[in-house]
């Protein structure tokens, strides 16, 4: 897709439909769509600084273990500038201000959220996994059972400090 906000709804719909096909209920599929939305927003705002002519790739695949589907794996890649991985985190939740929630939301609704640098010093890769409840997902009702998994420290979100 191109780096335009108008395509977010289509990406959400695709992610949600894929999650449903993989066996997730409507509630969990909605959270998968939310994670995709937040990930893409990070790319649009922080990776590409809202330039609307840049590429983003999203790959949806079943997570397979022992020849059975146990969840879904989502990979989002871009050609944006590479952010230091240690700076990609949520703002402190008690610090009530607009912005800075995207990474926290992704970590709350997915079992695994990993940012990587793409090969060649250009672009980021985000790999997110959500397991089915029967396959040991630790996500429950949209929040991790053990509370917030996001780093609750002031800092940066996505590709650079989030302020929107």
């Amino acid at each position: 897709m191109l780096s335009q906000p108008r395509y977010l709804s289509s990406a959400r719909a695709a992610a949600s439909a894929f999650a449903r096909q993989a066996g997730f209920d409507e509630h969990a599929s909605g959270h998968v769509a939310l994670a995709v939305d937040e990930a893409l927003c990070n790319v649009l705002k922080h990776g590409y600084d809202r330039r609307e002519d840049q590429p983003i790739w999203m790959d949806l695949s079943p997570l397979i273990e022992h020849q059975a589907v146990v969840g879904i794996r989502i990979v989002i890649e871009d050609e944006a500038k590479q952010a230091p991985l240690e700076t990609i985190r949520s703002r402190a939740l008690e610090e009530i201000r607009p912005g800075g929630l995207g990474v926290h939301i992704m970590r709350e609704v997915m079992d695994s959220v990993e940012f990587e640098h793409r090969e060649g010093n250009v672009g980021m890769r985000l790999v997110m996994i959500r397991r089915l409840p029967s396959a040991g997902s630790r996500v429950k009702y949209g929040a991790n059972q053990n509370g917030s998994a996001a780093a609750a420290q002031p800092g940066q979100e996505g590709h650079k400090a989030a302020s929107t």
């Binding site: 509630h27 959270h31 929630l101 926290h104 939301i105 709350e108 009702y141 949209g142």
Partner: peptide, 8 residues
Amino acid sequence: SMFQIAKL
């Protein structure tokens, strides 16, 4: 649910 996740 979004408000719950965001602790708002």
